[in-house]
């Protein structure tokens, strides 16, 4: 049996530097949850299919179960715990865009990136961005409304 040796790595998470010793084979999701105690990112499938583990890497939404922690050295990682008072969070609350809340961190990170990168997103763009995440509780309409309310607010301010 080949055992991946552990190594020291420094990750930049939510603006803070963290030095940890982890296996080279550890995924970012595993490291966030098990080494840093950031359990907001959720395991839903560990296969890239559900989006519950989505975080931002240099601003781009990435499924943290699909990337090794070691690959993120030198990049800036933002998890749901690093998001404070983002309009999308309030919108999710106001639009009742979650029930059990398990898919919510992943959805919010993805939707937040969408509103930042594509403030003028049309329906098709929204669909393309958000179809990577699964929510089993809501009808998705609530999530759609939350995203659209943030986009509309942004456009009003311009």
């Amino acid at each position: 049996m080949i055992r991946a040796p552990k190594c020291e790595m420094t990750l930049m998470v939510n603006g803070e530097k963290h030095s940890i010793v982890a296996r080279q084979a550890d995924t970012l999701l595993f490291v966030l949850r098990n080494y840093l105690g950031l359990t907001g990112s959720k395991p839903g499938c560990l296969n890239g299919d559900c989006g519950a583990c989505t975080v931002l890497i240099d601003g781009t939404p990435i499924k943290s179960c699909m990337i090794l922690a070691i690959e993120t050295i030198g990049k800036s990682i933002t998890t749901i715990e690093g998001l404070h008072d983002a309009p999308i969070q309030r919108a999710f609350v106001e639009q009742f865009a979650f029930q059990c809340g398990y898919c919510t961190p992943g959805f919010i990170m993805n939707a937040h990136a969408l509103t930042e990168h594509r403030p003028d997103a049309d329906d098709e763009t929204i669909r393309k961005w958000l179809e990577s995440n699964i929510c089993r509780c809501t009808s998705y309409r609530e999530i759609e409304q939350a995203v659209k309310s943030v986009l509309a607010e942004g456009q009003k301010q311009e």
Partner: peptide
């Protein structure tokens, strides 16, 4: 608004495996 809403949108809501 549900009582645990803000915990859920900030990643602070904890489930068994957390």
């Amino acid at each position: 608004i549900r009582k645990e809403a803000w915990d859920k949108v900030t990643g602070r809501a904890k489930y068994t495996h957390d």
